[in-house]
Design a protein around this nucleic acid. Structure first.
Lengths: 240, 240
DNA sequence: CGACGCGTTGAGGTGGGTCAAATAAAGTGG
DNA sequence: CCACTTTATTTGACCCACCTCAACGCGTCG
């Protein structure tokens, strides 16, 4: 079993880290990356208070991140799909500040951060790409800020669906038909809504003929109407 | 008029960029930093769609950042106080994605980003510090996410006050008595509330004896009760 | 089969929004 | 420094989007 797939052979390389590295230097990046065993659904990739040592790129499956407040309530802070990088919020604290849990069977590439920093000293484009990745995350959070503070429940759900659609498309998959990796509970929690509200909105969107919903399987029938709900035109890029 | 204050002489250096740079290399950092003329209240430091060339450290005064959605509504995304760095959300796009506007007369240090990247290649601690800064921003956004998605209006306002208090303290100023640089409108917008709600909460907190409020002047009388409202215990660090 | 997790649906309550209007504060031109 | 406009802030009355509570259907797994 070739758990050691090189970045060169990985179908995600155009949307993942390697896009910042010239072929000649690919081996250097490849050498510091660790490919671990697959995570089973529900397994943790890391937990808050674990030492921060690495960031992770999702290879397959899906991961959710969440924080738990002192009074024990959970806040889902993001969903990470193949080609996306997570764990960057722990850099400044030496320990992770959130938890990361597999939503379904998932494989990840582990990138030891101190080695990545070293490599970034040698490969300026890699340094720049990492700054960009973090910048993207900040920008996505700004979008989310507006979504949570100004938009209706309908807008929030529409926006999430369009985001998932865009991220599928980025990987070369269908943008109109896909399966959500997360539960209604996670969606609601992430968007600051009650589960019941999310469920009702799904049925309403379906009644309006905008979606075909069957459990977690989604088919987008009328993207324009969904966009009308979501603030962002066309290229919704909420990276969450 | 010595608009060119060196980082060495700046009272903010322990909380700003220089903390990551050894004295021997301070000059290199100092040389790439540009000190501009002061901004007047209401003036823009940059606007969305301006080319992204620099990040900025606030030297005095206060700056707010905001985005404007396609349908014209404004979302305040952050408040930046002396010693804090803003503009990092533009790195990946080559243009700024938000607007930055002075809330009161303010001076900033401009740090051309490409030169900062070059310097980071030579000074590993500087590279690390910048990663940390961005990581902090992401972490703060996570906190804000929970605030907006799970917490009551009271909690949100309390949390903002405690955050402002903590940031004053970090600069060696009073943590219990300070002046808010932003309007009620900005607070409400940032926290996803109506102005009226914010105003009512201020009066209510005052009635309970938790605060002394006079316009934008705040005195914190009962921190414990405020913390009880805000989820975060003690060291509230919401960096926003 | 029974139990548990997940999703949906209905009925009813409320935190915080909206609208309206008064008051205070800040700017502006003379 | 004053009258005058504009912009903040506060307060009150009313209402609605979304939450809560409760019940039910449906897989699936021991």
């Amino acid at each position: 079993m070739s758990q050691h797939v090189s970045c060169n052979d990985c179908s995600l390389s155009p949307v993942c880290l390697p896009l910042a590295v010239a072929p000649a230097q690919m081996d250097q990046l490849d050498n510091i990356i660790r490919r671990g065993r697959p995570l089973k659904r529900g397994e943790h990739l890391y937990r808050a208070s674990d030492n921060f040592e690495s960031v992770f790129a999702v290879r397959s499956g899906a991961i959710k991140t969440y924080v738990v407040s002192p009074d024990g309530e959970e806040q889902v802070t993001g969903f990470y799909m193949p080609g996306e990088v997570l764990g960057m919020d722990g850099i400044s604290t030496a320990h992770h500040v959130s938890n990361a849990k597999a939503l379904e069977t998932a494989t990840v590439c582990e990138i030891p951060f101190s080695q990545l920093e070293n490599l970034s000293q040698q490969i300026p484009t890699l340094q720049h790409h990492f700054f960009s990745l973090m910048s993207d995350e900040i920008r996505a959070d700004r979008e989310l800020h507006m979504l949570l503070s100004k938009k209706s429940a309908d807008d929030r759900v529409a926006s999430l669906l369009l985001s998932m659609s865009a991220r599928h498309q980025r990987r070369g998959l269908s943008s109109h038909s896909f399966r959500l990796p997360m539960s209604r509970y996670d969606i609601a929690n992430y968007l600051g809504l009650a589960v019941e509200t999310v469920s009702r909105i799904f049925t309403r969107f379906q009644q309006k003929g905008w979606l075909e919903v069957s459990g977690r399987d989604i088919e987008i029938l009328d993207r324009a109407s969904l966009c009308g709900n979501a603030p962002d035109t066309g290229t919704v890029e909420i990276q969450l």
